[in-house]
Simulated scan of single mutants.
Amino acid sequence: MPASEYVQKLRARVGHDLLMFPTVSAIVLNDRGELLLHQRSDTARWALIAGLMDPGEQPADAVVREVEEETAVQIKIDRLAGVVAHNVTYQNGDRCQMVNTFFRCRAVGGDARVNDSESLRVGWFALDALPALDPFNLRILSIALDDDAPPYFAAPGEGVF
């Protein structure tokens, strides 16, 4: 998937060196309790809906935008599930540390479908029949599904996910 003009300008200056970005992730459930996932076009792996925030954008606006852009599903945010930092190295060697704000959400409209070039497939999955997810996605999913938990944050000194 092509990087935004903002990211391209930063990469032109720093090459593959570490950059920090604010990101969002959505744990979206429908009325049947199924989870919305997409198969990423860059890695072919199944993942939660996520993306970079745009400059000047609030995290809540970014998560609503990302879900609709990638899946054509409209959401309502139920709660902040947490904020964590995690490292990503892309196939081209770009290194990033993402500061991810993740939200528990529910679908309120739209039909899930591939809606942009970032997804190969989009679908709803029963929680007991999920495709393979990477450790980061599994960890924030488990945090967000705990109805009684307060918003998560790494304790001082805990380090990066």
Rank of each mutant, 00 (worst) to 15 (best):
M1E: 05
S4Y: 03
Y6Q: 11
Y6D: 11
Y6T: 08
V7L: 08
K9R: 13
K9D: 08
L10F: 00
A12M: 02
H16I: 11
D17N: 10
D17P: 00
L19W: 01
M20P: 08
M20T: 11
F21H: 08
V24P: 02
L29Y: 01
N30F: 00
D31M: 06
R32N: 12
R32I: 03
R32S: 12
L35H: 04
L36Y: 04
L37P: 00
L37I: 03
H38L: 12
Q39A: 03
R40M: 08
R40Y: 01
D42W: 02
A44C: 07
W46T: 05
W46Q: 03
A47D: 08
L48D: 01
G51P: 00
M53R: 12
D54Y: 12
P55Y: 05
E57H: 06
Q58K: 13
Q58I: 05
P59W: 04
P59L: 10
P59T: 09
A60N: 09
D61W: 05
D61R: 14
V63D: 02
V63A: 03
V64E: 14
E66N: 13
E70M: 07
E70H: 07
V73M: 06
I75T: 13
I75N: 08
D78H: 05
A81G: 13
A81T: 00
G82I: 00
G82H: 03
V84P: 01
A85D: 15
N87R: 14
V88W: 05
V88E: 12
T89G: 05
Q91A: 15
G93L: 09
G93P: 07
D94M: 14
D94L: 15
Q97C: 11
M98K: 14
N100W: 01
F103Y: 15
R104F: 09
A107G: 09
G110S: 12
G110M: 12
G110R: 11
G110Y: 06
G110T: 09
D111W: 11
D111E: 15
S119C: 12
R121N: 15
A126C: 09
L127F: 00
L127I: 02
D128A: 07
D128F: 01
A129T: 10
L133S: 02
L133E: 01
D134R: 12
D134V: 10
P135R: 12
P135Y: 09
P135M: 09
F136N: 00
N137G: 08
N137Q: 12
L138P: 00
I140Y: 01
A144G: 07
L145E: 06
D147C: 09
D147R: 15
D147Q: 13
P150D: 13
P150Q: 13
Y152S: 06
Y152L: 04
P156V: 04
P156Q: 06
P156G: 06
G157P: 05
G159S: 05
V160T: 13
